[in-house]
């Protein structure tokens, strides 16, 4: 498992020394809002599905922004947001090791079994 590398809240992500746009006066000035992943449930009974990401200062703002950015046309009835740095993902390099073993297990599918017509509804 790899952890998505993102800075902690309030820490800028400026690379190449070009980060801050303007000299800023005080406090957390110039810091980028953290990144959030947005999940939308299209309608009751369906799963929440990942639909994109956005920057927001905190969770409640992220929900509000997600509503404006991702559900302008009734795309959803419920939203989840989660800090992007809290997501653990599988490594693409492990794809074969993780998922190929399932390729030769056809007996896990109902279509593997040929039954007499009278009971083929099983």
């Amino acid at each position: 498992m790899t952890r998505e590398a993102l800075p902690s809240p309030g820490q800028g992500r400026d690379g190449e020394g070009s980060g801050l746009l303007r000299p800023q006066a005080t406090g957390s000035a110039g810091a980028e809002w953290p990144l959030w992943e947005v999940f939308v449930r299209p309608k009751a009974g369906l799963d929440h599905k990942h639909c994109g990401s956005l920057h927001a200062p905190d969770a409640s703002a992220a929900v509000q922004f997600a509503r404006d950015v991702y559900t302008r046309r009734q795309e959803g009835t419920s939203l989840w947001v989660v800090r992007s740095d809290q997501i653990h993902a599988s490594d693409p390099a492990d794809k074969e090791a993780l998922f190929d073993p399932m390729a030769d297990k056809v007996y896990r599918h109902p279509s593997f079994y040929t039954l007499p017509a009278a009971v083929d509804h099983l």
Partner: peptide
């Protein structure tokens, strides 16, 4: 997934 960490795994 929409995240910005892009490094290939070691």
């Amino acid at each position: 997934m929409y995240t910005q960490a892009m490094d290939i795994g070691p």
